[in-house]
Design a protein around this nucleic acid. Structure first.
Length: 119
DNA sequence: ATGCTGACTATGT
DNA sequence: TACATAGCCAGCA
């Protein structure tokens, strides 16, 4: 107990961990936008960090990262140019999320709406 | 310790 | 309508 008053706790959750916690709450068959997740994680206006946090997710984390799409309702392109993009779309379709003819999801229809007044 | 990089979005010209 | 800019975390060399 040498920890002094006001000291930072041993494992203070990082902002990224908070982002992951929010993403875990997105139900199957629904999607949320980066900005939406950022706000729910207590990082309003920091949509970009959500993208970073997801990119940093370790494999097998159990976090449904595929349920996070950009404000246009589309799967964001990875700079890496891997197959993650196609995989994400495939996973979403498998959950029942449908893409329009232009490849975009109708957010007004599939967007996750958490209860409790927050959005 | 510094600097670069990476899954975004709102706003202004 | 299209393009540029600001905002600002965490891991790694």
């Amino acid at each position: 107990m040498t920890r002094r008053r006001g000291a930072i706790p041993p494992s203070a959750p990082t902002r990224w961990e908070r982002v992951w916690a929010v993403v875990r709450r997105i139900p199957r068959g629904r999607v949320a936008t980066y900005g939406q997740v950022a706000k729910l994680a207590g990082l309003p206006g920091q949509a970009r960090f959500v993208g970073y946090a997801l990119a940093a997710l370790p494999d097998g984390s159990g976090v449904a990262w595929q349920r996070v799409v950009n404000a246009s309702g589309r799967v964001s392109a990875r700079r890496d140019g891997g197959n993650a993009e196609a995989l994400q779309a495939a996973m979403l379709r498998r959950e029942g999320v449908r893409f329009g003819a232009d490849g975009a999801i109708a957010l007004e229809r599939f967007r996750w709406r958490p209860r409790g007044g927050r959005r």
